[in-house]
């Protein structure tokens, strides 16, 4: 690319950026805060219910809560509700573990017509796979460091 073109592109980008509609961050954050907060509160309710009924350890109770939340996220995605919540809530429904479940179910459903092996099963982790890769790899590195020091 010539220098002229690079300059032209740079000034065009600047011009476009000045025209791009700006998201209403305050409104988006309020939505994210409330929806995210509500999902976590539901998690807490589930946690307390399990704790009061069954005699699991605290750690096991947390694990069961995670199972329940993943089920809820997956189910709401299946019946077509989660994308409607997500449109308003943004990060409020993306960041909770229910959003992780959404990122698994949505591509899996979408690619059903490509078959149950290369469609559903292979596409399932197109968004969630990276989360596992980075989460697990980070924990291994931290574990090795912890062992050494």
């Amino acid at each position: 690319m010539s220098k002229n073109q690079a300059n032209r592109n740079k000034s065009y980008e600047k011009y476009v950026n000045s025209k791009v509609p700006k998201p209403n961050i305050l409104k988006n954050c309020l939505w994210a805060f409330f929806v995210g907060g509500i999902i976590c509160t539901i998690g807490q309710v589930v946690h307390n219910l399990i704790e009061s009924i069954y005699k699991y350890t605290h750690l096991d109770t947390s694990n069961i809560t995670t199972l329940v939340m993943i089920f809820l996220g997956a189910f709401l995605t299946g019946i077509g509700v989660y994308d409607i919540i997500g449109k308003k809530a943004g990060a409020g429904s993306l960041i909770p573990i229910t959003g992780f479940a959404n990122s698994i179910v949505a591509p899996a459903m979408e690619f059903k017509r490509e078959g149950y092996v290369m469609g559903v099963a292979a596409k399932m982790f197109s968004l969630a796979g990276p989360v596992l890769v980075y989460g697990i790899s980070t924990s291994v590195i931290i574990g090795i460091l912890y062992y050494i020091f």
Partner: peptide, 18 residues
């Protein structure tokens, strides 16, 4: 538990719904 639930419920929902 979480990872298995994600795989299993994910697969189940994908089969049940369009």
């Amino acid at each position: 538990g979480g990872v298995t639930a994600a795989v299993f419920f994910g697969y189940l929902m994908a089969i049940l719904f369009n």
